[in-house]
Amino acid sequence: MDFLQPTSWSEALDLRAERPDALPIAGGTDVMVELNFDRRRPGALLDLGRVPELSEWEADDGVVRLGAGVPYARVIDQLGAQLPGLAMAARTVGSPQIRMRGTVGGNLGSASPAGDAHPPLLAAGAVVEVASAARGSRDIPAADFYTGVKRNALEPDELIAAVRVPAATGPQQFSKIGTRNAMVIAVSAFACALHPDRRAVGTGIGSAAPTPRRAADAEAFLAGELQSAGLWESRAELPETLARAFGERVAAAASPIDDVRGSAAYRRHSLSVMARRAVTWAWSDLREAA
């Protein structure tokens, strides 16, 4: 197995194109597990750890451009205010060691339905920025990025450069169910974001469908109800019935399975509870901010 270590983004893209048999590695917290179990034996590892462009983030014009190689620990420390949903999700990932190594780019690369970064990226309306040596860069909205169980929209010669996430304009929440209180893969997860500037609601569901997905119907429903009840202006309390109806719509958007981590019925049920609670917290944060 060759070990390729580009030191610049353009070199990385060239190597990616030249070596279709190479497997990119960032923090390695998914890749090394795969290698150890002999589930993959790539011809080469393409180490992205020395590509400086990937390990930076910058905020510009209300959008945070988060380099694919920024680890969760930095998201938690540095981006809690701008990307609160993603930071909350990052806090639930693995253990301190995993959060030091693991990256959002790696989570996107693996595209596991249980990946914790996905729901908040969906809720925030993030865009994944990918690039190839041949065709330059292109943008893929997060909602189009996940194409199947552990599959994403990357072409074989492409790498993930960054994810561009609109900085929060309102409260965000992330909730994750696991059968222990830390270091656990999600049985189900939910993220929501309130966008008072555009009077919209964002959602993301994890571990309850073949891919992470939005609950588009629930988003439109809640935004519409808030609008028609004049709640965006009044910032009055969120009616419990509305929160509950939102939760039910979120649960309806899932297509969960029974597996060793939990039953489909529990996944659906837990989504409705998490969504109801999360939107209630988000709304009360919005009222407090007003």
């Binding site: 639930t92 909730s175 994750k176 169910i177 209180n181 830390a182 509870v273 998490m274 609670r277």
Partner: peptide, 16 residues
């Protein structure tokens, strides 16, 4: 939240 069921999973702030 670390003291609550679900801990950093942020599933309750005391509800339930």
């Amino acid at each position: 939240i670390r003291a609550l069921p679900g801990a950093v999973g942020n599933t309750t702030h005391g509800e339930g």
